[in-house]
Design a binder for these strands. Structure first.
Length: 497
RNA sequence: CGGGAUGUAGCUUAGUCCGGUUAAAGUGCGCGUCUGGGGGGCGCGAGAUCGGUGGUUCGAAUCCACUCAUCCCGACCA
Protein backbone atom coordinates (compact mmCIF):
# COMPACT_ATOMS: atom_id res chain seq x y z
CA UNK A 1 0.00 0.00 0.00
CA UNK A 2 1.27 3.47 -0.78
CA UNK A 3 1.14 5.92 2.03
CA UNK A 4 1.84 9.60 1.97
CA UNK A 5 5.09 8.83 3.79
CA UNK A 6 6.39 6.52 1.10
CA UNK A 7 6.06 9.28 -1.38
CA UNK A 8 7.31 12.14 0.74
CA UNK A 9 10.27 10.57 2.45
CA UNK A 10 12.02 7.39 3.31
CA UNK A 11 9.86 5.71 5.92
CA UNK A 12 11.10 2.87 8.03
CA UNK A 13 9.40 0.42 10.31
CA UNK A 14 9.88 1.27 13.96
CA UNK A 15 10.84 -1.28 16.59
CA UNK A 16 7.55 -0.79 18.41
CA UNK A 17 5.52 -1.33 15.25
CA UNK A 18 6.98 -4.63 14.11
CA UNK A 19 10.26 -5.69 15.62
CA UNK A 20 11.17 -8.41 13.16
CA UNK A 21 10.26 -6.25 10.20
CA UNK A 22 12.41 -3.50 11.68
CA UNK A 23 15.26 -6.00 11.94
CA UNK A 24 14.96 -7.28 8.38
CA UNK A 25 14.78 -3.79 6.94
CA UNK A 26 17.72 -2.65 9.00
CA UNK A 27 19.97 -5.47 7.87
CA UNK A 28 19.33 -4.47 4.29
CA UNK A 29 19.27 -0.73 4.80
CA UNK A 30 22.61 -0.77 6.62
CA UNK A 31 24.00 -2.81 3.74
CA UNK A 32 24.98 -5.74 5.93
CA UNK A 33 23.46 -8.60 3.97
CA UNK A 34 20.82 -9.62 1.48
CA UNK A 35 18.87 -12.72 0.62
CA UNK A 36 20.41 -15.00 -1.92
CA UNK A 37 18.45 -16.83 -4.58
CA UNK A 38 19.31 -19.98 -2.69
CA UNK A 39 16.64 -20.50 -0.10
CA UNK A 40 17.80 -19.80 3.42
CA UNK A 41 21.18 -18.51 2.37
CA UNK A 42 22.43 -14.96 2.50
CA UNK A 43 25.00 -12.78 0.86
CA UNK A 44 27.06 -10.96 3.47
CA UNK A 45 27.89 -7.61 1.94
CA UNK A 46 31.19 -5.77 2.44
CA UNK A 47 30.03 -3.58 5.31
CA UNK A 48 28.45 -6.51 7.14
CA UNK A 49 31.48 -8.64 6.52
CA UNK A 50 33.77 -5.89 7.83
CA UNK A 51 31.98 -6.11 11.17
CA UNK A 52 32.28 -9.90 11.18
CA UNK A 53 35.98 -9.53 10.37
CA UNK A 54 36.43 -7.27 13.39
CA UNK A 55 34.75 -9.92 15.53
CA UNK A 56 36.99 -12.58 14.06
CA UNK A 57 40.13 -10.56 14.66
CA UNK A 58 39.34 -10.00 18.30
CA UNK A 59 38.18 -13.55 18.98
CA UNK A 60 41.07 -15.06 17.09
CA UNK A 61 43.51 -13.10 19.26
CA UNK A 62 41.72 -14.30 22.36
CA UNK A 63 41.93 -17.91 21.19
CA UNK A 64 45.63 -17.57 20.47
CA UNK A 65 46.19 -16.00 23.89
CA UNK A 66 44.58 -19.03 25.49
CA UNK A 67 46.93 -21.35 23.61
CA UNK A 68 44.85 -22.43 20.64
CA UNK A 69 45.97 -22.85 17.03
CA UNK A 70 43.93 -22.66 13.89
CA UNK A 71 43.57 -25.57 11.48
CA UNK A 72 41.16 -26.61 8.79
CA UNK A 73 39.13 -29.78 8.33
CA UNK A 74 37.05 -30.76 5.29
CA UNK A 75 33.61 -29.48 4.41
CA UNK A 76 32.48 -33.00 3.51
CA UNK A 77 32.02 -35.71 6.07
CA UNK A 78 31.46 -39.38 5.22
CA UNK A 79 27.90 -40.19 6.16
CA UNK A 80 29.00 -43.09 8.33
CA UNK A 81 31.01 -40.83 10.65
CA UNK A 82 27.94 -39.00 11.81
CA UNK A 83 26.25 -42.14 13.02
CA UNK A 84 29.13 -43.19 15.27
CA UNK A 85 27.92 -41.05 18.15
CA UNK A 86 24.28 -41.90 18.83
CA UNK A 87 22.87 -38.69 20.26
CA UNK A 88 24.95 -36.60 17.88
CA UNK A 89 23.42 -38.20 14.80
CA UNK A 90 19.97 -37.87 16.31
CA UNK A 91 20.51 -34.17 16.82
CA UNK A 92 21.76 -33.34 13.37
CA UNK A 93 20.44 -35.98 10.94
CA UNK A 94 17.24 -34.06 10.25
CA UNK A 95 19.04 -31.03 8.87
CA UNK A 96 21.94 -32.38 6.84
CA UNK A 97 22.61 -31.58 3.21
CA UNK A 98 23.83 -34.72 1.46
CA UNK A 99 26.13 -35.06 -1.55
CA UNK A 100 25.15 -38.09 -3.57
CA UNK A 101 26.81 -37.54 -6.97
CA UNK A 102 30.00 -36.04 -8.28
CA UNK A 103 29.22 -35.23 -11.90
CA UNK A 104 26.74 -33.45 -14.14
CA UNK A 105 26.08 -34.00 -17.81
CA UNK A 106 24.19 -32.25 -20.56
CA UNK A 107 20.55 -33.21 -20.69
CA UNK A 108 19.61 -35.15 -23.81
CA UNK A 109 16.74 -32.80 -24.58
CA UNK A 110 19.08 -29.81 -24.40
CA UNK A 111 17.33 -28.34 -21.39
CA UNK A 112 20.56 -27.83 -19.45
CA UNK A 113 22.62 -30.01 -17.15
CA UNK A 114 21.35 -32.93 -15.15
CA UNK A 115 22.90 -35.16 -12.53
CA UNK A 116 24.75 -38.01 -14.17
CA UNK A 117 23.22 -41.12 -12.63
CA UNK A 118 26.41 -43.05 -13.35
CA UNK A 119 28.34 -40.75 -11.04
CA UNK A 120 26.78 -41.92 -7.82
CA UNK A 121 29.04 -41.82 -4.78
CA UNK A 122 29.65 -45.13 -3.14
CA UNK A 123 29.50 -43.50 0.26
CA UNK A 124 27.43 -40.37 0.39
CA UNK A 125 28.97 -37.28 1.95
CA UNK A 126 27.23 -34.88 4.23
CA UNK A 127 28.01 -31.21 4.31
CA UNK A 128 29.27 -30.53 7.84
CA UNK A 129 26.65 -29.23 10.26
CA UNK A 130 29.53 -29.22 12.79
CA UNK A 131 32.88 -30.98 12.69
CA UNK A 132 33.21 -33.14 15.80
CA UNK A 133 33.10 -36.39 13.86
CA UNK A 134 35.62 -35.63 11.16
CA UNK A 135 37.95 -33.97 13.63
CA UNK A 136 37.84 -36.83 16.11
CA UNK A 137 38.48 -39.23 13.29
CA UNK A 138 41.73 -37.35 12.73
CA UNK A 139 42.52 -37.06 16.42
CA UNK A 140 42.57 -40.85 16.62
CA UNK A 141 45.73 -40.80 14.53
CA UNK A 142 47.23 -37.81 16.27
CA UNK A 143 46.98 -39.08 19.81
CA UNK A 144 48.87 -42.02 21.27
CA UNK A 145 50.39 -40.79 24.49
CA UNK A 146 49.66 -38.30 27.23
CA UNK A 147 52.58 -36.40 25.69
CA UNK A 148 50.36 -35.63 22.66
CA UNK A 149 47.82 -33.90 24.87
CA UNK A 150 46.25 -31.47 25.11
CA UNK A 151 45.29 -30.68 21.54
CA UNK A 152 43.90 -27.17 21.33
CA UNK A 153 42.53 -26.43 17.90
CA UNK A 154 40.13 -23.95 16.43
CA UNK A 155 38.80 -23.64 12.92
CA UNK A 156 37.03 -20.81 11.13
CA UNK A 157 34.59 -22.35 8.70
CA UNK A 158 31.18 -22.40 7.14
CA UNK A 159 28.63 -25.01 8.14
CA UNK A 160 25.25 -26.02 6.78
CA UNK A 161 22.11 -26.84 8.71
CA UNK A 162 19.04 -27.23 6.56
CA UNK A 163 16.66 -25.11 8.59
CA UNK A 164 12.98 -24.83 7.80
CA UNK A 165 12.72 -21.19 8.72
CA UNK A 166 15.58 -18.80 8.33
CA UNK A 167 16.35 -15.18 9.14
CA UNK A 168 19.30 -13.10 8.07
CA UNK A 169 22.21 -13.72 10.46
CA UNK A 170 20.02 -15.23 13.19
CA UNK A 171 19.37 -18.48 11.41
CA UNK A 172 20.58 -19.23 7.91
CA UNK A 173 21.04 -22.55 6.17
CA UNK A 174 24.72 -21.84 5.72
CA UNK A 175 26.54 -19.78 8.30
CA UNK A 176 30.06 -18.81 9.26
CA UNK A 177 31.48 -19.64 12.63
CA UNK A 178 34.45 -20.82 14.55
CA UNK A 179 34.53 -24.17 16.25
CA UNK A 180 37.09 -25.06 18.85
CA UNK A 181 37.84 -28.75 19.38
CA UNK A 182 40.12 -29.75 22.19
CA UNK A 183 41.38 -33.05 23.53
CA UNK A 184 42.56 -33.58 27.10
CA UNK A 185 44.03 -36.25 29.35
CA UNK A 186 41.67 -35.67 32.23
CA UNK A 187 38.04 -34.81 32.73
CA UNK A 188 38.93 -31.88 34.95
CA UNK A 189 41.21 -30.34 32.39
CA UNK A 190 38.45 -30.57 29.77
CA UNK A 191 35.91 -29.12 32.19
CA UNK A 192 38.25 -26.21 32.91
CA UNK A 193 38.71 -25.63 29.20
CA UNK A 194 34.94 -25.59 28.68
CA UNK A 195 34.61 -22.96 31.37
CA UNK A 196 37.61 -20.96 30.17
CA UNK A 197 36.19 -20.60 26.66
CA UNK A 198 32.80 -19.64 28.01
CA UNK A 199 34.52 -16.85 29.88
CA UNK A 200 36.32 -15.81 26.69
CA UNK A 201 32.97 -15.54 24.94
CA UNK A 202 31.43 -13.61 27.81
CA UNK A 203 34.35 -11.20 27.88
CA UNK A 204 34.11 -10.70 24.14
CA UNK A 205 30.37 -10.08 24.29
CA UNK A 206 30.59 -7.62 27.17
CA UNK A 207 33.83 -5.78 26.43
CA UNK A 208 33.62 -5.61 22.65
CA UNK A 209 29.99 -6.05 21.68
CA UNK A 210 28.93 -4.08 24.77
CA UNK A 211 26.31 -6.78 25.23
CA UNK A 212 25.69 -8.05 28.76
CA UNK A 213 25.30 -11.81 29.01
CA UNK A 214 24.24 -14.39 31.54
CA UNK A 215 26.64 -17.30 31.87
CA UNK A 216 24.79 -20.47 32.45
CA UNK A 217 24.31 -24.16 31.93
CA UNK A 218 21.81 -25.70 29.55
CA UNK A 219 19.24 -28.19 30.78
CA UNK A 220 19.43 -31.74 29.44
CA UNK A 221 16.87 -31.02 26.72
CA UNK A 222 18.70 -27.96 25.43
CA UNK A 223 22.12 -29.59 25.56
CA UNK A 224 24.27 -30.03 22.45
CA UNK A 225 23.81 -33.38 20.74
CA UNK A 226 26.70 -35.48 22.01
CA UNK A 227 27.68 -33.33 25.01
CA UNK A 228 27.76 -34.19 28.68
CA UNK A 229 27.37 -30.58 29.64
CA UNK A 230 26.66 -27.42 27.66
CA UNK A 231 27.53 -23.97 28.97
CA UNK A 232 26.19 -20.90 27.24
CA UNK A 233 26.04 -17.16 27.24
CA UNK A 234 22.53 -15.82 26.93
CA UNK A 235 21.66 -12.26 26.07
CA UNK A 236 18.46 -10.30 25.93
CA UNK A 237 17.33 -8.46 22.83
CA UNK A 238 15.37 -5.21 22.88
CA UNK A 239 12.10 -6.97 22.14
CA UNK A 240 12.46 -9.05 25.28
CA UNK A 241 13.44 -12.27 23.57
CA UNK A 242 16.55 -14.14 24.62
CA UNK A 243 19.32 -15.09 22.26
CA UNK A 244 21.94 -17.77 22.77
CA UNK A 245 25.13 -16.01 21.74
CA UNK A 246 27.69 -18.72 22.31
CA UNK A 247 28.10 -22.25 23.61
CA UNK A 248 30.90 -24.27 25.13
CA UNK A 249 30.52 -28.01 25.54
CA UNK A 250 32.12 -30.59 27.75
CA UNK A 251 31.91 -33.68 25.56
CA UNK A 252 33.18 -36.18 28.11
CA UNK A 253 34.60 -39.24 26.40
CA UNK A 254 31.68 -39.60 24.01
CA UNK A 255 33.57 -38.82 20.83
CA UNK A 256 36.73 -40.55 22.00
CA UNK A 257 34.70 -43.72 22.47
CA UNK A 258 32.84 -43.29 19.19
CA UNK A 259 36.10 -42.84 17.29
CA UNK A 260 38.24 -45.00 19.51
CA UNK A 261 40.68 -42.32 20.57
CA UNK A 262 42.83 -43.62 23.42
CA UNK A 263 46.10 -42.48 24.92
CA UNK A 264 48.66 -44.14 27.14
CA UNK A 265 48.94 -42.36 30.47
CA UNK A 266 52.13 -42.11 32.53
CA UNK A 267 51.60 -45.63 33.87
CA UNK A 268 51.17 -46.92 30.34
CA UNK A 269 47.49 -47.58 30.87
CA UNK A 270 45.17 -46.91 27.88
CA UNK A 271 42.48 -44.30 28.55
CA UNK A 272 39.87 -42.57 26.42
CA UNK A 273 40.53 -38.90 25.72
CA UNK A 274 38.35 -36.12 27.15
CA UNK A 275 36.94 -33.51 24.80
CA UNK A 276 35.44 -30.06 24.50
CA UNK A 277 34.00 -28.04 21.67
CA UNK A 278 32.86 -24.44 21.58
CA UNK A 279 31.58 -22.03 19.00
CA UNK A 280 30.15 -18.68 18.07
CA UNK A 281 28.70 -17.83 14.69
CA UNK A 282 27.55 -15.02 12.43
CA UNK A 283 24.52 -15.10 14.66
CA UNK A 284 26.51 -12.69 16.80
CA UNK A 285 25.86 -10.15 14.06
CA UNK A 286 22.16 -10.51 14.75
CA UNK A 287 22.76 -10.11 18.46
CA UNK A 288 24.85 -7.02 17.90
CA UNK A 289 22.16 -5.45 15.74
CA UNK A 290 19.27 -6.23 18.06
CA UNK A 291 21.10 -5.24 21.22
CA UNK A 292 21.85 -1.60 20.45
CA UNK A 293 20.25 -0.35 17.27
CA UNK A 294 17.40 2.14 17.10
CA UNK A 295 14.69 3.30 14.70
CA UNK A 296 17.16 5.36 12.68
CA UNK A 297 19.49 2.47 12.04
CA UNK A 298 22.41 0.51 13.29
CA UNK A 299 24.26 1.50 16.45
CA UNK A 300 27.70 -0.05 16.63
CA UNK A 301 29.92 -0.22 19.68
CA UNK A 302 33.14 1.69 18.86
CA UNK A 303 35.37 -1.32 19.49
CA UNK A 304 33.74 -3.30 16.66
CA UNK A 305 32.86 -0.51 14.24
CA UNK A 306 34.73 -0.81 10.94
CA UNK A 307 34.59 2.98 10.67
CA UNK A 308 34.74 4.65 14.07
CA UNK A 309 34.72 8.25 12.92
CA UNK A 310 33.43 9.76 9.70
CA UNK A 311 33.90 13.36 8.64
CA UNK A 312 31.67 15.24 6.22
CA UNK A 313 32.68 18.53 4.64
CA UNK A 314 30.08 21.19 3.93
CA UNK A 315 30.97 23.61 1.19
CA UNK A 316 29.84 25.59 -1.82
CA UNK A 317 32.99 26.32 -3.75
CA UNK A 318 36.03 24.26 -4.56
CA UNK A 319 38.11 26.68 -2.51
CA UNK A 320 35.98 26.03 0.54
CA UNK A 321 36.25 22.30 0.05
CA UNK A 322 39.97 22.51 -0.37
CA UNK A 323 40.58 24.45 2.86
CA UNK A 324 38.26 22.13 4.80
CA UNK A 325 40.01 19.11 3.32
CA UNK A 326 43.34 20.47 4.54
CA UNK A 327 42.11 20.45 8.12
CA UNK A 328 40.57 17.01 7.69
CA UNK A 329 43.79 15.54 6.46
CA UNK A 330 45.52 16.88 9.58
CA UNK A 331 42.87 15.06 11.58
CA UNK A 332 43.36 11.89 9.62
CA UNK A 333 46.98 11.76 10.76
CA UNK A 334 46.06 12.34 14.40
CA UNK A 335 43.45 9.57 14.32
CA UNK A 336 45.88 7.21 12.70
CA UNK A 337 48.37 7.80 15.50
CA UNK A 338 45.66 6.94 18.01
CA UNK A 339 44.60 3.81 16.11
CA UNK A 340 41.16 5.20 15.40
CA UNK A 341 39.64 4.24 12.05
CA UNK A 342 38.62 7.37 10.26
CA UNK A 343 36.89 8.06 6.98
CA UNK A 344 36.84 11.44 5.32
CA UNK A 345 33.90 11.45 2.94
CA UNK A 346 34.51 14.18 0.40
CA UNK A 347 32.45 12.45 -2.28
CA UNK A 348 30.99 15.30 -4.30
CA UNK A 349 28.17 13.16 -5.65
CA UNK A 350 26.38 12.98 -2.30
CA UNK A 351 25.09 15.92 -0.36
CA UNK A 352 25.77 16.41 3.35
CA UNK A 353 22.24 15.56 4.47
CA UNK A 354 22.35 12.32 2.54
CA UNK A 355 25.66 11.40 4.10
CA UNK A 356 24.42 12.15 7.60
CA UNK A 357 21.55 9.72 7.15
CA UNK A 358 23.74 7.14 5.51
CA UNK A 359 26.25 6.99 8.35
CA UNK A 360 23.52 7.03 10.95
CA UNK A 361 21.92 4.06 9.23
CA UNK A 362 25.26 2.28 9.23
CA UNK A 363 25.89 2.99 12.88
CA UNK A 364 29.17 4.86 12.60
CA UNK A 365 29.82 5.92 16.21
CA UNK A 366 31.05 9.47 15.68
CA UNK A 367 30.33 11.88 12.88
CA UNK A 368 32.23 15.10 12.35
CA UNK A 369 31.06 17.91 10.11
CA UNK A 370 32.88 21.04 9.14
CA UNK A 371 31.59 23.92 7.07
CA UNK A 372 32.84 27.40 6.22
CA UNK A 373 31.47 28.86 9.47
CA UNK A 374 33.26 26.23 11.58
CA UNK A 375 36.41 26.71 9.60
CA UNK A 376 36.36 30.45 10.23
CA UNK A 377 35.70 29.96 13.96
CA UNK A 378 38.21 27.14 14.46
CA UNK A 379 35.37 24.76 15.41
CA UNK A 380 34.02 21.40 14.30
CA UNK A 381 30.70 19.64 14.85
CA UNK A 382 30.75 16.31 16.67
CA UNK A 383 27.73 14.01 16.78
CA UNK A 384 27.64 10.76 18.73
CA UNK A 385 25.46 8.00 17.32
CA UNK A 386 24.21 6.42 20.54
CA UNK A 387 22.52 9.52 21.98
CA UNK A 388 22.49 11.63 18.79
CA UNK A 389 23.92 14.44 20.91
CA UNK A 390 25.42 17.21 18.80
CA UNK A 391 28.25 19.45 19.98
CA UNK A 392 30.36 22.19 18.47
CA UNK A 393 33.89 21.87 19.82
CA UNK A 394 37.27 23.50 19.19
CA UNK A 395 39.06 21.97 16.26
CA UNK A 396 42.20 22.11 18.33
CA UNK A 397 42.24 18.95 20.43
CA UNK A 398 39.25 17.33 18.75
CA UNK A 399 41.11 14.06 18.23
CA UNK A 400 41.60 13.73 21.99
CA UNK A 401 37.99 14.64 22.54
CA UNK A 402 36.80 12.00 20.08
CA UNK A 403 39.14 9.41 21.54
CA UNK A 404 37.55 9.95 24.94
CA UNK A 405 34.09 10.02 23.43
CA UNK A 406 34.55 6.62 21.79
CA UNK A 407 35.55 5.08 25.11
CA UNK A 408 32.63 6.75 26.84
CA UNK A 409 30.24 5.47 24.17
CA UNK A 410 31.51 1.92 24.49
CA UNK A 411 30.84 2.10 28.22
CA UNK A 412 27.51 3.84 27.77
CA UNK A 413 26.19 1.24 25.33
CA UNK A 414 27.08 -1.55 27.73
CA UNK A 415 25.53 0.23 30.69
CA UNK A 416 22.36 0.99 28.76
CA UNK A 417 22.03 -2.63 27.69
CA UNK A 418 22.82 -3.83 31.20
CA UNK A 419 20.14 -1.60 32.71
CA UNK A 420 17.69 -2.93 30.15
CA UNK A 421 18.58 -6.51 30.97
CA UNK A 422 18.35 -5.94 34.72
CA UNK A 423 15.04 -4.12 34.40
CA UNK A 424 13.73 -6.90 32.17
CA UNK A 425 14.60 -9.72 34.54
CA UNK A 426 11.72 -10.56 36.83
CA UNK A 427 11.50 -13.01 39.72
CA UNK A 428 8.20 -14.81 40.06
CA UNK A 429 6.93 -17.49 42.43
CA UNK A 430 3.56 -18.61 41.11
CA UNK A 431 2.43 -19.76 37.71
CA UNK A 432 -0.09 -16.99 37.04
CA UNK A 433 2.61 -14.38 37.60
CA UNK A 434 4.96 -16.51 35.50
CA UNK A 435 2.64 -16.55 32.50
CA UNK A 436 2.11 -12.84 32.78
CA UNK A 437 5.84 -12.16 33.04
CA UNK A 438 6.62 -14.34 30.03
CA UNK A 439 4.00 -12.53 28.03
CA UNK A 440 5.66 -9.25 28.93
CA UNK A 441 9.02 -10.43 27.63
CA UNK A 442 12.42 -10.55 29.26
CA UNK A 443 14.09 -13.07 31.52
CA UNK A 444 11.88 -14.67 34.11
CA UNK A 445 13.68 -16.08 37.10
CA UNK A 446 11.74 -18.89 38.71
CA UNK A 447 12.06 -22.15 40.57
CA UNK A 448 12.01 -25.37 38.59
CA UNK A 449 11.85 -28.92 39.84
CA UNK A 450 14.62 -30.11 37.54
CA UNK A 451 12.52 -32.45 35.41
CA UNK A 452 12.33 -32.42 31.62
CA UNK A 453 8.58 -33.12 31.87
CA UNK A 454 7.94 -29.86 33.69
CA UNK A 455 10.22 -27.98 31.33
CA UNK A 456 8.31 -29.38 28.37
CA UNK A 457 4.92 -28.56 29.86
CA UNK A 458 5.94 -24.99 30.54
CA UNK A 459 7.14 -24.69 26.96
CA UNK A 460 3.85 -25.97 25.62
CA UNK A 461 1.82 -23.64 27.78
CA UNK A 462 3.85 -20.46 27.46
CA UNK A 463 6.36 -20.96 24.62
CA UNK A 464 9.07 -20.12 27.14
CA UNK A 465 12.13 -22.32 27.48
CA UNK A 466 14.74 -22.54 30.17
CA UNK A 467 17.51 -20.42 28.72
CA UNK A 468 19.97 -21.51 31.33
CA UNK A 469 20.72 -22.35 34.91
CA UNK A 470 22.89 -19.35 35.76
CA UNK A 471 26.39 -20.20 36.92
CA UNK A 472 26.00 -17.64 39.69
CA UNK A 473 22.71 -19.17 40.78
CA UNK A 474 21.98 -18.55 44.46
CA UNK A 475 21.11 -21.63 46.47
CA UNK A 476 17.68 -21.05 47.92
CA UNK A 477 14.87 -23.40 48.77
CA UNK A 478 11.72 -22.87 46.82
CA UNK A 479 8.89 -24.58 45.02
CA UNK A 480 8.72 -25.24 41.30
CA UNK A 481 6.62 -22.60 39.64
CA UNK A 482 4.53 -25.24 37.85
CA UNK A 483 4.66 -28.51 39.80
CA UNK A 484 5.20 -27.10 43.29
CA UNK A 485 7.90 -29.70 43.89
CA UNK A 486 10.99 -28.62 45.82
CA UNK A 487 13.72 -26.67 44.06
CA UNK A 488 17.11 -25.47 45.21
CA UNK A 489 17.50 -22.43 43.02
CA UNK A 490 16.05 -20.28 40.30
CA UNK A 491 16.59 -20.75 36.57
CA UNK A 492 16.07 -18.27 33.75
CA UNK A 493 13.11 -18.69 31.44
CA UNK A 494 12.37 -16.65 28.31
CA UNK A 495 11.01 -16.84 24.84
CA UNK A 496 14.00 -17.25 22.61
CA UNK A 497 15.29 -16.73 19.12
C1' C B 1 5.64 -30.80 6.89
C1' G B 2 0.55 -28.31 8.32
C1' G B 3 -2.28 -23.14 8.06
C1' G B 4 -2.40 -18.22 5.46
C1' A B 5 -0.76 -14.77 1.75
C1' U B 6 1.92 -12.84 -2.40
C1' G B 7 4.51 -12.95 -7.36
C1' U B 8 3.84 -6.51 -12.42
C1' A B 9 10.82 -1.93 -14.06
C1' G B 10 16.93 -2.69 -9.75
C1' C B 11 13.48 -1.78 -5.25
C1' U B 12 8.37 -0.55 -3.21
C1' U B 13 3.77 -0.89 -5.25
C1' A B 14 -1.14 0.62 -8.34
C1' G B 15 -4.02 -1.85 -11.96
C1' U B 16 -6.74 -7.97 -11.25
C1' C B 17 -12.99 -8.23 -8.23
C1' C B 18 -15.99 -6.32 -13.44
C1' G B 19 -10.92 -8.99 -19.87
C1' G B 20 -10.52 -4.12 -24.50
C1' U B 21 -5.36 0.74 -28.09
C1' U B 22 1.19 1.94 -26.56
C1' A B 23 0.71 -1.53 -18.53
C1' A B 24 0.90 3.38 -14.31
C1' A B 25 3.46 5.74 -10.19
C1' G B 26 7.23 6.62 -6.36
C1' U B 27 12.16 5.54 -5.50
C1' G B 28 16.67 4.15 -7.76
C1' C B 29 19.67 4.69 -12.45
C1' G B 30 21.74 8.14 -16.77
C1' C B 31 22.21 13.26 -18.87
C1' G B 32 21.56 18.62 -18.19
C1' U B 33 20.75 22.58 -14.96
C1' C B 34 19.96 25.40 -10.50
C1' U B 35 22.05 23.93 -5.90
C1' G B 36 24.74 22.55 -1.15
C1' G B 37 24.68 23.33 7.56
C1' G B 38 19.80 16.78 7.92
C1' G B 39 18.08 11.69 2.69
C1' G B 40 17.47 18.88 -2.67
C1' G B 41 14.38 21.42 -6.96
C1' C B 42 13.29 21.49 -12.18
C1' G B 43 13.70 19.29 -17.17
C1' C B 44 14.82 15.17 -20.30
C1' G B 45 15.92 9.93 -20.83
C1' A B 46 16.75 4.54 -20.35
C1' G B 47 14.39 0.61 -17.85
C1' A B 48 8.65 -4.65 -17.58
C1' U B 49 7.86 -10.26 -23.13
C1' C B 50 3.02 -8.55 -15.78
C1' G B 51 6.87 -15.81 -11.93
C1' G B 52 6.28 -20.19 -15.53
C1' U B 53 3.28 -23.64 -18.58
C1' G B 54 -1.22 -24.78 -20.65
C1' G B 55 -6.38 -23.47 -21.40
C1' U B 56 -11.01 -20.20 -22.23
C1' U B 57 -11.66 -15.87 -25.66
C1' C B 58 -11.85 -12.00 -31.58
C1' G B 59 -8.76 -10.16 -27.45
C1' A B 60 -5.66 -12.12 -20.95
C1' A B 61 -1.41 -8.69 -16.08
C1' U B 62 -6.88 -9.44 -15.37
C1' C B 63 -10.82 -15.56 -15.95
C1' C B 64 -9.62 -21.21 -15.26
C1' A B 65 -6.10 -25.34 -14.32
C1' C B 66 -1.47 -26.88 -13.17
C1' U B 67 3.39 -25.58 -11.65
C1' C B 68 7.51 -22.92 -9.53
C1' A B 69 9.18 -19.42 -6.06
C1' U B 70 9.04 -16.26 -1.93
C1' C B 71 7.04 -14.26 2.63
C1' C B 72 4.14 -14.71 7.26
C1' C B 73 2.06 -18.03 11.35
C1' G B 74 2.93 -23.03 13.61
C1' A B 75 6.26 -27.80 14.66
C1' C B 76 12.10 -28.05 14.57
C1' C B 77 16.57 -25.33 15.44
C1' A B 78 23.21 -21.97 17.02
Amino acid sequence: MHTIFDIMAVKHTKRTEDYSKWYNELVQRADLAEHSDVRGCMVIKPYGFAIWERMKEVLDDMFKETGHSNAYFPLFIPKSYLSKEASHVEGFAKECAVVTHYRLKNAEDGSGVVVDPKAKLEEELIVRPTSETIIWNSYRNWIQSYRDLPILINQWANVVRWEMRTRLFLRTAEFLWQEGHTAHATANEAIDETRQMLDVYAKFAEDFMAMPVVRGRKTASERFAGAEDTLCIESLMQDGKALQAGTSHFLGQNFAKAFDVKFADKEGKLEYVWATSWGVSTRLMGALIMCHSDDEGLVLPPRLAPIQVVAVPIYRSKEELSSISDRMLELKKLFKEKGISFKYDDDDNRRPGWKFSEYETKGVPVRLAMGPRDLANGKIEVVRRDTKEKKIVDFEGVSDYVDGLLKEMQEHLFQRALDFKNNSTIEVDDFEAFKKAIKGGGFVSAHWDGSSETEEKIKEMTQATIRCIPLDQIKENGKCVLSGKPSEGRVLFAKAY
